[in-house]
Design a protein around this nucleic acid. Structure first.
Lengths: 174, 174
DNA sequence: CGTTTCTTTCAGTACAAACTGAATATACAG
DNA sequence: CTGTATATTCAGTTTGTACTGAAAGAAACG
């Protein structure tokens, strides 16, 4: 992965761009893209050179990817440096990211809604309407959580089975 | 909605914060939260005052919410100003947002992957490995698209049925 | 039409997040 | 231990996005 080919460059740039749109640091996303495409683990310095970013930036970004569990350090014989490699199983990678974003973002939102409903003083202005809206939103988040839990537990390949079932149910329903 | 209650404030602030984490402008998210909680349509000026942001900022943000189709302008008798109201159906709101983010982000990524696979020169360094990685990622995005199409067409309430099915399949499988 | 009310646009500014490079810490070899 | 290679931290800087206020543009009114 000393030099990038055109296709690789495209992929890395696009991935970085996508990252920013989903609240993920551009460099973090680019490093992940680079490692994902690399057939071997890469040392931080090589990553920095390839992407033209500071060595320290790579260090921070790698650490974030590690906390997500989609990149890990491996050791190479006769080299003191850490080498980093990306998980290659795409489904598993997204599952990990989704699981953690749920924990960091969905769960606190659910909690906020629950607390809001509890804290609502029936005497305050428009309490009934506010309760109604909060409850509707809370219901949605409960369902999303349920969906996530299901997915998490489904054996591999079952998602596709469910997709087919969805088709059948849709046909029946008209 | 002249003055905000504590619970309403909490909701609006939290929603704004969530927005930023998902690549959605804080003010846009806050305005949406405010309108979602409001039992009546609000004129831009009132929104600006309530959230302490510039009138022009509200204008821009409202326009974005309108392009997503989750906020619309309505007219109030005896008032020349536009009043804005949010859609109240939570599922439908998220469906709209997801559909459009898919169009703006997932579809172009799918396209990039397809083009990458087509452009890959078999003679360039590591072409086989790159192809393998791109293909794996492309497969994932195809599946996501399929999933999205299914969901889009499912009659209301079917998602919940699928959830229950998932439970059964999981029990059988393990 | 001219006036008033409301909305949008836009150039400039403010702010938050990302990034750098130097300093510091850690790990290893001799 | 000492010296060297590598990794991390952090203060300061850069960059990009969000935001403001003034000005221009529309729309309704008399």
């Amino acid at each position: 992965m000393a030099e990038l080919t055109g296709v690789q460059k495209q992929y890395i740039l696009h991935w970085g761009e996508m990252g920013t749109r989903w609240g993920i640091n551009r460099t973090v996303a680019q490093i992940h893209a680079l490692l994902y495409l690399s057939p071997r683990a890469l040392p931080a310095e090589e990553i920095a050179e390839t992407l033209s970013v500071a060595r320290s930036n790579v260090s921070t970004s790698i650490r974030e990817l590690e906390t997500w569990g989609i990149v890990r350090a491996v050791h190479v014989l006769g080299d003191r440096r850490e080498h980093y490699e990306s998980m290659k199983d795409v489904w598993e990678m997204f599952r990990l990211v989704i699981e953690q974003r749920k924990r960091r973002e969905i769960d606190p939102t659910r909690e906020m809604l629950r607390r809001g409903l509890a804290d609502l003083d029936p005497k305050e202005l428009g309490a009934d309407y506010t309760r109604e809206r909060l409850a509707a939103m809370a219901g949605f988040f409960e369902a999303v959580t349920e969906l996530h839990d299901q997915m998490k537990r489904l054996p591999t390949g079952t998602v596709r089975k469910l997709l087919r079932m969805g088709t059948k149910m849709r046909r029946k329903a008209g």
